[in-house]
Design a protein around this nucleic acid. Structure first.
Length: 759
RNA sequence: GGACAAUUAGCUCAGCUGGUUAGAGCACUACAUUCACAUUGUAGGGGUCAUUGGUUCAAAUCCAAUAUUGUCCACCA
């Protein structure tokens, strides 16, 4: 009997020690790993790289984040154990709008607001806020056992990374992919920024459907209308009465017999008292409402298109904050949209122009982050024309250069590429990478000149009655160019959409195409992330990767399952049904949680977290520990040397073990982690423990200490144990390394299990 | 409105390119055991593999339709 070994694997205590052991070994660094292989004269295979998905730096990691890492780590460890210098490159994401929103709320709770702080101070404080979260996140990553190379960790706002992001922007501008444009955008009145289409959601909400009469200008038309419709005008139906102040036409379907005689006639826009035409537009739905559509090009994407087609004027009546403004009666200026809607309905009713109001449910576009209703407004923004980039990515997908697991999601991605629209990449935020552009004479001038082709600076001065100091040109760079003779350069205030930088993650973190790491470790080998960000992230990474490096950044993207609350609903902070990762770690240990992920959180599945199952896995961890303990305790001190020298590897049991290792390896190679995890569990528990240990136990029971039979039996067991520890290690690294180190203490093994090579 | 996926034991799911009595974990039942095992072992119960057709010597597995559920996409005022 050797020294006492605890009866269970004390995960809380041991996991930290073991992680430090790995950290100190340096083998998470692929360069160190390579040296090790060379020294040991093990064939060095191709490098294996994954740039890990960076968690948002604005909060605490949850079980879903952990899940992806469990998979990354398993494959990474397996690769390391099969001769590949392996780089798991970690990072953290500044998560633009989301972090700005979280931090702004935090400021508000302290009775501050961002404008008081000013841009620079806000940025500084937000950075500090993120630092805390990042340290926290890193702790969790290490707790799940992630064998990442933290010496290479990146933050998406790291200047080294930003430099590459900027160079992409410059290149795209020169090549005409990036441009400024004035069009209708999704404005979030709460976040005070423009959003890309993809950053919005649809939700059914209750609303009103108001029927409003727009009287005809001509007396004769009024008469005809009175006869036909019972009112002296054309009745339109709308869910947003407040936008009527910006109406510039009424559209009817040319096939609609009710209205055909009125096409080309004019109606008076009530309250605003403007005359607007009735136009024929074949996209107008005759069945909906009254079949007559009020057209507000400035505040509805559909109407914007109609307006373009019919060259209608654009009248802005709602500003960036969702307040009424512009060329409207004074009493409405500054009102919120709902307030204005009510006020208008009241006035219309008094004028007898409000036919009725129906209460309806309809789809509303909302902000993905704060769930506020989106305000479509006309605005100047930076756009990225992604059409040709998407085409290239789509071709790569179709050729099979890159594939998505599960397969069904690949089709969704293809569809996304096929229907892609220009991407609005500017955000009116402070938290992010400031778009590196300078405007000579001001941004307003630049936009005005773009809009008014053929006009020049003096036309602008005449129009606005101001003097301009500049040429209306722009300059791309982080610092303004030298001013000549009083020229004033105005810096762009907008920042990039967060996905513009995270979309470049795989090569920016490797130092860009000139980086040493890039040359060694790009393209990467795979990507694993949640289904929810497929279009935001992988879609962009493929496009950027092909654009900047002419290579796909990784050939496989695997989407993890979604972890649900115990009752099967989505975990959410607001519902308070989330499960804290630390709770699970404390109770059952990282290995038990990992096993559960491999088996239950498969691509395409939705798994409610089940403590009983994690507990079952914990029992398996205990089983491994005790089986090992039993073997070790059976080796008498006087037998240690003999056993360690007598590792015979020719027995039926060893042959079966070899086959087992091969089988599990194949599962891992095919990303069938569930089958792999089940296999190691089944084999170790029911083959090694229940059968072999029992057999050998009785074989050596009556043998004297030091006898050949004992030594042979124990040596065989030890050999089986070691090979099993190795193949189990990618899945459950802590307990296997823990046992390994016990072996090391007794002189029965050496080094760290993490870099032991599989059969 | 469109796309995609799922539908297998009480629960969560495996079951790859079709082949004898359909599997795992957890839960459940009985017995054994404190032998390394904050337990474990042995044995067991439980499924007409959503429905209906079709292909086939043979289908949970392939095809079609139907139903239900879920996810995503979508400008219907």
């Amino acid at each position: 009997m050797q020294k006492e070994i605890p009866k269970t694997f004390e995960s809380n205590k041991r996991e930290k020690e073991i992680y430090s052991l790995w950290k100190n070994s340096g083998f998470s660094n692929p360069d160190t790993m390579q040296k090790y292989l060379e020294e040991k004269e093990i064939e060095v295979k191709t490098s294996f790289t994954i740039t890990l998905p960076p968690p948002n730096a604005n909060g605490t990691p949850h079980l879903g984040h952990m899940c992806g890492y469990a998979f990354h780590d398993a494959i990474g460890r397996y690769k390391r154990m099969t001769g590949h210098p392996t780089l798991l490159l970690p990072g953290k994401d500044h998560a633009g709008i989301q972090t700005e929103s979280v931090f702004t709320k935090l400021l508000e709770s302290r009775g501050q607001n961002k404008f008081e702080l000013g841009r620079e101070e806000f940025y500084k404080q937000c950075y500090e806020f993120c630092l805390t979260n990042m340290n926290n996140a890193r702790e969790y990553e290490q707790r799940i056992g992630l064998s990442a190379d933290f010496s290479r960790e990146f933050f998406t706002l790291d200047p080294r990374l930003t430099e590459i992001v900027y160079s992409t922007f410059y290149k795209m501008f020169e090549e005409g992919f990036v441009y400024r444009d004035k069009r209708i955008i999704n404005q979030c009145p709460n976040c005070h920024t423009a959003l890309a289409d993809i950053d919005t959601e649809h939700e059914e909400r209750r609303g009103i459907f108001a029927y409003i009469v727009y009287p005809f200008v001509e007396e004769s038309d009024r008469k005809k209308a009175k006869e036909l419709f019972g009112v002296e005008g054309i009745t339109v139906a709308t869910t947003r009465p407040e936008t009527m102040l910006g109406d510039t036409a009424v559209a009817v379907n040319p096939k609609d017999k009710r209205y055909s005689q009125f096409v080309g006639k004019k109606v008076v826009l009530p309250i605003a008292n403007r005359e607007i035409p009735v136009i024929a537009e074949d996209t107008t739905d005759m069945e909906l409402g009254t079949g007559a559509l009020k057209v507000t090009p400035a505040h509805s994407p559909v109407d914007f298109e109609i307006g373009k087609k019919h060259s209608l004027p654009i009248v802005n009546v709602i500003n960036e904050e969702g307040k009424m403004m512009g060329d409207i009666p004074e009493r409405f200026v500054g009102m919120g949209t709902t307030e204005c809607s009510k006020a208008l309905c009241k006035e219309l009713d008094d004028l007898d122009l409000l036919v009725k109001i129906e209460n309806i449910k309809h789809e509303v576009v909302i902000c993905e982050r704060c769930k506020s209703a989106i305000e479509p407004i006309i605005s100047n923004q930076w756009y990225l024309n992604v059409e040709s980039l998407a085409k290239r990515a789509l071709e790569a997908l179709k050729r099979g250069d890159v594939s998505v697991v599960p397969k069904g999601q690949q089709k969704a991605l293809e569809y996304f590429y096929e229907n892609i629209q220009p991407w609005c990449i500017s955000r009116q935020l402070w938290w992010g990478q400031r778009i590196p552009v300078w405007y000579s004479g001001g941004k307003k001038l630049y936009d005005w000149l773009l809009e008014n082709k053929g006009k020049n600076v003096s036309d602008f001065e005449k129009e606005f009655g101001t003097k301009v100091f500049g040429t209306g040109k722009i300059f791309l760079g982080e610092q303004p160019p030298k001013s000549e003779s009083g020229e004033v350069w105005e810096q762009e205030t907008d920042v990039f959409d967060t996905w513009f930088s995270s979309g470049q993650w795989p090569y920016t973190t490797l130092g860009g195409s000139d980086g040493d790491d890039f040359k060694k470790y790009y393209p990467t080998q795979m990507m694993i992330h949640g289904r929810d960000i497929l279009f935001w992230w992988t879609a962009r990474m493929l496009m950027f990767g092909l654009y900047r490096t002419d290579q796909i950044p990784y050939p496989v993207v695997m989407l993890t399952g979604i972890i649900l609350a115990p009752d099967g609903s989505k975990m959410s902070k607001s519902k308070g049904n989330g499960v804290e990762p630390s709770e699970i770690f404390d109770k059952y240990g990282a290995d038990a949680l990992r096993l559960w992920y491999y088996i239950d959180a498969l691509p395409g599945s939705n798994s409610p977290i089940r403590e009983e199952k994690i507990k079952g896995n914990r029992n398996f961890i205990t089983k491994i520990w005790n089986a090992s303990r039993f073997i070790l305790m059976n080796i008498d001190e006087s037998e240690l040397e003999a056993v360690s020298k007598n590792l015979k590897i020719n027995s039926e049991r060893i042959e079966i073990t070899k086959k087992h290792v091969k089988k599990v390896s194949e599962y891992i190679e095919k990303f069938q982690f569930n089958l792999g995890a089940e296999e190691i569990r089944e084999f170790f528990w029911h083959q090694v423990c229940d059968v072999w240990i029992e057999e050998i136990k009785s074989e050596i029971k009556d043998q004297p200490v030091g006898s050949e039979k004992r030594i042979d039996g124990l040596a065989e067991l030890l050999c089986i144990l070691k090979e099993n520890l190795k193949i189990m290690h990618p899945f459950i690294p802590f307990v296997t390394e823990g046992v390994w180190q016990e072996l090391v203490n007794l002189g029965l093994a050496s080094g760290v299990l993490m870099v032991e090579q599989l059969f």
